[in-house]
Simulated scan of single mutants.
Amino acid sequence: MLVFPNAKINIGLNIVEKRSDGFHNIESCFYPVGWSDALEIVRSEKFAFQSDGITIPGDFSNNLCTKAYQMLAADYTFPAVNIHLLKAVPIGAGLGGGSSDAAFTIKALNDLFLLNISLEKQLDYARRLGSDCAFFIENKPLYCYEKGDKFEEISLTLAGKWIVLVNPGLHISTVEAYSGVKPRQSETDLRELLKLPLSDWKSAVKNDFEESLFPKFPVLQQIKNELYKTGAAYAAMSGSGSTLYGIFQEEKDLSAHFKECKIWQGLLK
Rank of each mutant, 00 (worst) to 15 (best):
L194C: 10
K216A: 12
L170W: 12
M237Y: 00
Q185A: 10
L198H: 03
G246K: 09
F214V: 11
L194Q: 07
V219N: 03
K182S: 15
T174Y: 06
A232F: 03
R191D: 11
P168C: 15
K229W: 00
S238V: 08
E192A: 08
G246Q: 09
N225K: 14
D253R: 04
K182P: 01
K182E: 15
K252Y: 07
N207H: 03
E250F: 05
N225L: 12
L194I: 04
V181M: 02
L170V: 10
A236H: 03
A235I: 10
K216I: 07
P168T: 14
E251H: 13
E211C: 03
Q222L: 15
A235K: 03
F214E: 02
T174L: 09
A177M: 01
A232K: 05
G241E: 06
V219L: 10
P168L: 14
Y228A: 09
Q185M: 05
G239M: 08
I223Y: 02
L196S: 07
T230I: 02
I247F: 01
A233T: 04
L198E: 06
F209A: 10
A233Y: 00
F214Y: 11
K216W: 06
V219H: 00
P218E: 12
R184N: 02
S238I: 09
K224G: 04
T243L: 11
F214K: 05
S212M: 07
G231Y: 07
D208I: 13
F217R: 10
D200S: 15
S173L: 01
S173A: 02
L194E: 10
L213Q: 08
M237Q: 05
A236Y: 00
I223N: 01
G246P: 03
S238N: 10
L193M: 13
L198I: 13
F217D: 06
L213F: 00
A232Y: 04
T174E: 08
I172W: 07
D208W: 06
R191P: 11
H171D: 01
Y178N: 14
L194N: 11
M237C: 04
S186L: 04
E192D: 10
G246W: 12
E250P: 00
S173Y: 02
P183K: 04
S203M: 14
K216R: 15
L244E: 08
R184L: 14
Y178S: 08
K195N: 13
E226Y: 00
T188C: 03
